[in-house]
């Protein structure tokens, strides 16, 4: 049977891996290639590289590191950040990325999703959704340009409607970033993920909030997500992938052994 996936996320800014708290105050973690190699060797099932500045700056920064990563590692990886055209997607995929993840550009131009799916196939088009729980209205709202706090803004979409929209346009996988949880290590947003799992027929990846072994167990058992993405717990070496997979196996969750 299919294993649940453990996915370290490397936020990339100007060619280095960084990490913020609730999408702010980024600190430098290190160079891209050694971290990618370390996670692949440690038993990560897949990697995501998120270029957090690109969309907000309306540019695609130097992506030559994509090819260097593709040469080094033998597990799949996704590149996200500022990909807003077929030509840019083509370039990233040709450098060896397995999937591309689209976020703000899809909100600006939803047709981009079906255009990319038609061109490259559903399997390599991931849609990232940054979802924030608004306590005033008690609704989950989609945000854009979350890589740059000065430009981060609420969109007209509620998360549930946007999810249904991107699925109808052929998205092959969804990464749901629960912004209230990001970087604070208090656990994934189980309630939101449970609700969206029911209406998500493609693979669903939980993102934001992982801080302890049980957070991963809970999100797999309670929200039945296909994968769990995390950054700071791995970067700060608070959790090792080997320990995590051992913990999940003991909890009866199927993972690929390290």
């Amino acid at each position: 049977m299919l294993a649940r996936r453990i996915i370290p996320c490397l936020d990339v800014r100007d060619g280095e891996v960084v990490k913020g708290v609730q999408f702010r105050n980024h600190e430098i973690i290190g160079a891209i290639e050694p971290l990618a190699e370390r996670y692949a060797a440690a038993g990560a099932d897949e990697l995501v590289f998120y270029d957090i500045t690109a969309s907000a700056d309306a540019r695609v920064v130097d992506k030559s590191w994509v090819e260097r990563v593709a040469r080094l590692i033998d597990i799949p990886f996704t590149v996200a950040g500022g990909i807003s055209s077929v030509a840019q997607a083509q370039e990233i995929l040709a450098m060896g990325a397995d999937k591309i993840s689209i976020n703000s550009p899809a909100l600006r131009d939803p047709d981009l999703i079906n255009t990319l799916v038609d061109e490259f196939g559903q399997q390599c088009i991931v849609i990232g959704i940054d979802s924030f729980f608004d306590t005033d209205t008690e609704t989950y709202q989609v945000y854009q340009f979350t890589g740059d706090e000065s430009r981060t803004s609420k969109t007209r979409w509620q998360t549930r409607e946007w999810l249904q929209e991107v699925i109808s346009r052929g998205a092959g996988e969804i990464v749901l970033n629960c912004m209230n949880q990001d970087g604070v290590r208090q656990g994934y947003d189980i309630a939101q993920l449970q609700a969206l799992r029911k209406i998500c027929p493609v693979p669903l990846i939980a993102s934001g909030g992982a801080g302890a072994l049980n957070h991963f167990r809970d999100v797999f058992q309670q929200a039945e997500v296909d994968g769990a993405l995390a950054a700071s717990v791995f970067h700060k070496q608070l959790i090792s992938i080997a320990d995590l997979k051992s913990h999940l196996t003991h909890a009866g969750i199927l993972v690929r052994p390290v």
């Binding site: 299919l2 099932d45 559903q122 996988e173």
Partner: peptide
């Protein structure tokens, strides 16, 4: 009824 595409590690 499982999610499609079949994406990930399997035996």
């Amino acid at each position: 009824g499982l999610p499609l595409p079949h994406m990930g590690w399997n035996t």
